[in-house]
């Protein structure tokens, strides 16, 4: 859009350090090109080129109105040229306004919060204790009844969204795949095997070279061991020094605890006690 004439002006501008004349160029297609120069706040000169199309809008108005249109300006506008001033008047973005007979807030724009709320309302809420339509944590029977036994992992996807960050009542965050897992809390590392914390022993001071099978052999003497978990270092593959052993029966576990505590195994003396839940229940 810049024209040769404009360029010479720029040159002159550099020498004399004053702004060139504003230009109005009439184009062939009836539009006008208006070039204005101004100094910005930071001292830089700016050139604004606007190409506009003028259209005369004829309006038949009341003579009073026509007369008022030629009033002289006063106050802060005194002496300003006719037409809207750019400092007080601007044109806003287009607005789509669509009158509709059954207009609803939802049809147009709904706030995020509202949406979330309705999503939550629509989600199926089922208590795992009494199958009522409330969260398990809010269940009136939560102290008197245990979680229903049929809360198998297969059902969990249904439950997961509502358990939310509440983490089934323990107060701490529970990852989604572990949610809805019974009484909550406990040593979760065992995953789905660990059902009954009451029959689980914590074995510490285990030798580094110990294997799960060694522990299983030793502890099987006192009853049916359902699970052995030996914590291992991920990189070296060596035992970290503690393990969990679960029994099917609590009395077996108690016997094992008694006998195995202080048992020498691989230069070290085992320490065996009942596993505690992290929250000390």
């Amino acid at each position: 859009m810049s024209r040769p004439a404009g360029r010479t002006d720029w040159a002159a501008d550099d020498e004399e350090d004053e702004l060139p004349q504003n230009q109005i160029i009439k184009n062939k297609d009836g539009t006008e090109t208006i070039i204005t120069y101004a100094v910005r706040e930071d001292g830089k000169k700016i050139k604004t080129t606007r190409r506009i199309k003028k259209s005369v809008v004829k309006q038949i108005v009341n003579p009073r109105v026509a007369e008022r249109k030629h009033w002289e300006k006063f106050g802060q506008e005194k002496g300003k040229p006719a037409g809207p001033q750019t400092d007080t008047v601007s044109v806003a973005e287009n607005i789509v306004f669509r009158p509709t007979a059954n207009w609803k807030a939802s049809s147009d724009d709904k706030s995020e919060a509202d949406k979330k709320k309705t999503d939550l309302k629509q989600a199926k809420i089922k208590c795992r204790i009494c199958s009522g339509d409330h969260f398990t944590t809010k269940c009136p029977f939560k102290d008197t009844m245990g979680v229903a036994d049929d809360a198998t992992p297969a059902e969990m996807p249904d439950d997961a969204p509502q358990a939310g960050g509440a983490g089934a009542g323990s107060g701490s965050y529970v990852p989604p795949h572990l949610r809805g897992r019974g009484a909550g809390g406990g040593e979760k590392m065992g995953g789905k095997y660990e059902r009954d914390d009451l029959a689980t022993l914590r074995v510490t001071n285990v030798s580094e070279i110990a294997e799960e099978q060694d522990l299983r052999d030793m502890f099987s003497r006192y009853g049916h061991v359902t699970r052995v978990f030996l914590a291992k270092d991920r990189e070296t593959g060596r035992a970290k020094g503690f393990a969990f052993v679960s029994y099917a029966d609590r009395s077996d576990a108690a016997k094992a605890c008694e006998k195995m505590d202080g048992y020498g195994f691989g230069h070290l003396i085992l320490r065996v006690e009942f596993a505690k839940k992290p929250d000390g229940k």
Binding site: V57, I60, G83, P84
Partner: peptide, 16 residues
Amino acid sequence: FNTKTSISEVGSVKIH
């Protein structure tokens, strides 16, 4: 209402 025609001053805003 007179049929007097008034040509509205067409400022840049109007033109846009």
